[in-house]
Amino acid sequence: MGPSSLFWLLLWSPIFHLTLSTELRKFERLSVEKRNWKNGQTACADKNGHLVTLHNRYDAQLIHKLINRPGATAYLGLHEKKDAHQSEWSNGVEMTKWTTEANITYEQKCVAIQNNEWREQPCNETMYFMCYNISAYQLIEQKKDWCEARLYCRKHFTDLVSINNNNQNDEALRRGANRTFWIGLKHDNYQWEDGQCSTFREGITISAAGHKECAHQYEDNVVLDRCNNTHNIICMQGDTRITVPTDPLTWEEAYDYCKKNHDGLLFIRDQDEQLEVEKWLNATGVPGPVWLGLRQSRVLGFWFWSTIDQVVDFINWRDGPPELPLSYHCGAIDGRGTWSDVKCQTKLPALCIEDMYSTTD
């Protein structure tokens, strides 16, 4: 099912111009001398940003591209927690009565209920999960990693479920109906400087000297080393990242998928966002064309961003906006950042957006 009937009625209105408060992530490599981790953190804060958080291999590829020369390094936001070796619930409450063996190196361990017992699992595994709100627990039968599950619960409920007594545990087991599912307990010796949750830990090594306090990226690898060493600084601003569904989809399928699983199809409102998208496409090598949230009114002919119900203002079409009656009605972007109209039933990859700080409305 596509956009709502009310949305289509709004297209007839000359005042149709709604907005969503969100900002696409932007990355900037500072052209100053190398800094230690703390000074890098301060420099990014002065720009209203943070050291970089990696969520997936696309992020790692982008940072590799921004470092921009062989052998160069740049600090990331990953650093050792002051309260390492403690396990916490998703709501930040420390778990004191549970013994874990996950207090080694950079490992994350998250807890799932399996066969009615609590089991440690790598946090990047995907499985069902249980959310809660004031009145009830709810098993969500979608497979997500632990951080994705937490984000979903915070957007649609209150949080991943916390279990503090036998009655709560019995209720979780009853609601879980013998399924395997995440609960809100996680152990991690490390945290990202901006507070985001990420299960990405690929390619991490520890320095030869065994120091593992702060992380920097060297080409495609992440190295845990001393925080007082100096590296390049890349700052990150914005709260919305790009993510890519696994399978090619029609435009309507992509619209539904991105709305259900993330925060909608990607939209581009100005030249700055266009440049960031081009930078992302160039670094990650995602083949184009890929779907955007671009759609054309079949009646009035104007183009709009379906995700934010906003008429297109900034444009980057190959030959100007496609016009009725010869145009196709869905918009895509190629690997160089150029927009084009494509038949809506064509199956293409899609660019979804994810607001990393969303919480329950």
Rank of each mutant, 00 (worst) to 15 (best):
Y75N: 02
Y132K: 02
C110K: 14
T96L: 04
N133E: 11
T105M: 03
C153G: 09
G92T: 02
N68E: 04
W146Y: 03
D145A: 04
Y106E: 01
I104S: 14
A102G: 12
N68S: 09
K144N: 08
K155M: 08
Y106H: 06
K82Q: 06
N115F: 03
H85N: 15
N116K: 11
R69F: 08
E94L: 01
C123M: 10
E101F: 10
L139Q: 05
R154I: 11
T126M: 12
C153W: 07
D83E: 09
K109R: 12
Q142L: 15
Y132L: 01
N115R: 10
H64Q: 02
L62E: 03
C131N: 00
K81T: 08
K155S: 09
E94H: 06
C153R: 08
H55F: 15
A60F: 07
E120S: 13
K143W: 07
I140V: 15
E125V: 13
N91M: 07
I113W: 04
Q61W: 10
Y128T: 10
N103P: 05
E125G: 12
A60G: 01
M95A: 06
D145P: 00
L66D: 05
T126P: 13
C147W: 01
Q86K: 14
Y137Q: 12
A84Y: 06
R69T: 02
P122R: 08
Y152S: 12
W118F: 13
S135M: 02
E94I: 11
I104L: 09
C131E: 09
L151C: 06
E117A: 15
K81A: 13
T96G: 10
Q142M: 14
K82R: 07
K82N: 09
H79D: 02
K144W: 09
C147P: 12
N68I: 00
R154E: 12
D59P: 09
A60D: 15
K143I: 07
Q108G: 08
I63T: 01
H85K: 15
K82C: 06
E120T: 01
Y106F: 08
T73W: 11
W89R: 01
A149I: 05
L66Y: 00
E107L: 14
L78I: 13
F129H: 07
P122G: 05
Y106I: 00
K144C: 00
M95I: 11
W98S: 05
D59S: 02
V93H: 04
Q86I: 00
A136P: 03
W146P: 06
K65A: 05
C110P: 14
L62S: 03
Y128F: 08
C153Q: 01
Q114L: 08
L76N: 03
